[in-house]
Nucleic acid binder design. Structure first.
Lengths: 198, 198
DNA sequence: CCTACCGATCGGTAGG
DNA sequence: CCTACCGATCGGTAGG
């Protein structure tokens, strides 16, 4: 990723769009070439292999998330604020890269063993960042003493799932969506505690 | 699905295990045959096409979920109880069919257009069942006045995601897991409200 | 970016 | 359930 030419970016985004629709494994280089109106062989002036596209897609997203969690932990103080910020940035990254996000979330399994290991490591580091925030929130007394692993997975899965239904041209912007998710994650489904009624 | 012979069941479960590992599209009929120690052609005495395996896997799971939501709505009264029960049964179905569950959640996209439409319809009906419970909980005043669509998706995604990490031989049984998830979904991450401290 | 082409693998069939 | 085999498609290369 030392440089990515304009044409290569077109190949990447077109591929990601196709991968989102049919999945990486079911998308052929011929499909990609056709969508770009070029011959299959021409792709290989820009990429080395089909897996290259997958690798770049997965790791570019992983890098965005790594940067975001770093930013959150550098700036914000309180765990609740940091979690909110992390979720907001996460939603922002997903919604502004919907096609690549699906590849990142779903198709990374098709990476070759070495790339896959590296990817899983990066994803684990990000998840650990989220767990750390939860841990601190518990220590501060602001979060429930919950199972941290399950909490982190529940948060990430509910946030990641938006790539399956979010429409960029819909009436729900990323920030509003992030707020709704945050509220759900922080206070749950149940209505205000009984004390509210007395 | 009028009848499924014992051998066919072996083919199904072996295929689902492979699909879980590599995905439907990346698993060849030769992979399946090899795992069963038979020749690829022999598979076709039991199945018509590779997609048959996918179809049966997806729709058998869909049927289990349809039955579960029906049961929940027939027996339980209060929305919160019904939601808890629905989540518990959902977790139960997932954890006792982990391989097929992954296919159901992830690989249904590879269904042919007609089967895919039918599948999406069934899944939508189930999701609507969940939304209905949430709606009733709000009407009863026991659930927050939240975005029902987002709440349902957040619940289902966090529950479905367990297939990615749950280990049958781990120390967490399905019921405990369901309870943890329920608690998270109902009361969220934040610690008890201030009133608890006075 | 194209023409021409490669060996490998794909899902599946015929016939036993 | 097997042997033998099919046409189609796969990712990718040589050479321009």
């Amino acid at each position: 990723m030392l440089q990515t030419t304009e044409r290569k970016r077109e190949i990447l985004s077109t591929s990601q769009r196709l991968f989102k629709e049919k999945g990486y494994a079911s998308t052929s280089v011929r499909d990609i070439a056709k969508a770009l109106n070029i011959e299959p062989a021409s792709l290989y002036s820009h990429i080395k292999t089909k897996e290259d596209i997958l690798k770049i897609s997965c790791f570019e997203m992983a890098d965005k998330f790594a940067l975001a969690i770093k930013e959150v932990n550098d700036i914000y103080f309180n765990a609740e604020e940091r979690l909110k910020m992390a979720i907001e940035m996460h939603v922002q990254i997903l919604t502004s890269n919907l096609d690549a996000a699906v590849v990142f979330i779903r198709d990374w399994r098709n990476l070759s063993p070495e790339a896959r290991s590296e990817f899983v490591e990066k994803r684990n580091a990000y998840e650990e960042g989220i767990r750390q925030i939860i841990r601190e929130g518990i220590d501060e007394g602001n979060f429930q003493e919950t199972d941290i692993k399950i909490a982190a997975l529940a948060i990430l899965s509910s946030v990641n799932w938006i790539v399956e239904w979010y429409k960029v041209d819909g009436d729900l912007d990323a920030k509003s969506l992030a707020e709704k998710l945050c509220s759900f994650i922080l206070t749950g489904l149940k209505a205000g505690k009984p004390t509210q009624h007395f």
